[in-house]
Write a protein that binds this DNA or RNA. Structure first.
Lengths: 189, 189
DNA sequence: ACTACTATTAGTACCAAGTGTTAGTATCGG
DNA sequence: CCGATACTAACACTTGGTACTAATAGTAGT
């Protein structure tokens, strides 16, 4: 005997979630009902048609791709910099930067903001991070704006120590000490 | 005067790459030619139709999602994991991960691989990085494959210390000690 | 000037995967 | 047995195309 409506509909949901690329026709054959019944089910469950499903999946990807491009360029926006002295950047935490489960920002984004700020601070063509000691003081959530402040505290030949503090409002969320390496010794200016 | 064919076609490619969701009709209006001309152009350039474009974008996402479903949001590809013990991931450094000037991988990518591996290693819904001490031992370049190995070395209540070592071939390029926090204490097994 | 050729436009038939609507049939509970 | 719910069927219409044919405009070659 055929499955009862409720059962079919709940299985339909799973089926479509599992493979959003399935057509009404295929579903009809699978459940051994008419295409119309599948359509009615979709109506009742307000599941959009195949093309809309595919489109929305594609739109997600596309937006993600577009948004993750500039991540490599500069993480956060540098709003002030005095080379070999201090630098400030801001970074707006958005949905794509957080864990889906708990909407807490993934550590590497905060690290990336601080690290790239430390790199930007060094007045040299080739600045690399040699070591770092970091601390994630408080979780950061989607929608929050992180202000990162970097300060060069010590320079010794090709090594520069940079201290970075990131805050949301007045609360410190991240602290790091970056040991930076440069290709040439700091020239006297 | 209208643009010559060659020009239109090269712009058409950009236009579609830029926004794969554009219809022939919209393109026809944009270039002020007939829909048929756009279709002929697509044929010549072997650009698939709207739905196929969208579908292929969606398929990518879907495949990606499937791959990262259980081990959510990891940088690099996890190839082995034993929860609360060890984990291994690989990460292929590509052009977009390096500084343009010197083609050396940006630190935060190596950090991200190590950090997300440390997160994946923790057998808990909510794993966060509290502190980390890291060292970039050797520059990594575009095209190289970084193998990252994480090992849980100490667990004390909600704190777990994870040691991560990343190598290219036999050479260690990154070392890190991550102090991870979990939402619930590790259950005795 | 005539021909050849390219680029463009127009129009037709067709397809997939639907929507929206109306109508008819089955089946089950009370 | 009646009526509600569930299901099926049929038809017109929509989008965004493919595939094909035919007509036209402009340009170059000889």
């Amino acid at each position: 005997m055929k499955k009862i409506k409720k059962v079919r509909q709940s299985e339909l949901i799973k089926k479509i979630e599992d493979n959003p690329f399935v057509t009404d026709d295929e579903l009809a054959k699978f459940f051994d009902v008419s295409v119309q019944t599948i359509r009615l089910d979709r109506m009742e469950l307000s599941i959009p048609e195949l093309r809309e499903r595919i489109k929305s999946v594609a739109e997600q990807t596309f937006e993600d791709e577009v948004r993750s491009l500039p991540i490599d360029e500069v993480i956060g926006e540098i709003i002030d910099v005095e080379l070999d002295d201090y630098a400030i950047s801001i970074f707006d935490v958005q949905k794509e930067h957080v864990f889906q489960r708990n909407s807490i920002a993934r550590g590497h984004h905060l690290f990336a903001q601080a690290n790239s700020l430390a790199v930007a601070l060094i007045d040299d063509d080739l600045a690399l991070t040699a070591k770092a000691a970091i601390e994630f003081c408080k979780p950061v959530r989607s929608g929050q704006r992180v202000v990162s402040k970097a300060r060069a505290v010590k320079t010794d030949g090709r090594r520069t120590t940079v201290e970075v503090t990131s805050s949301v409002g007045k609360e410190v969320v991240f602290k790091g000490e970056f040991d930076m390496y440069r290709s040439s010794e700091k020239g006297g200016e």
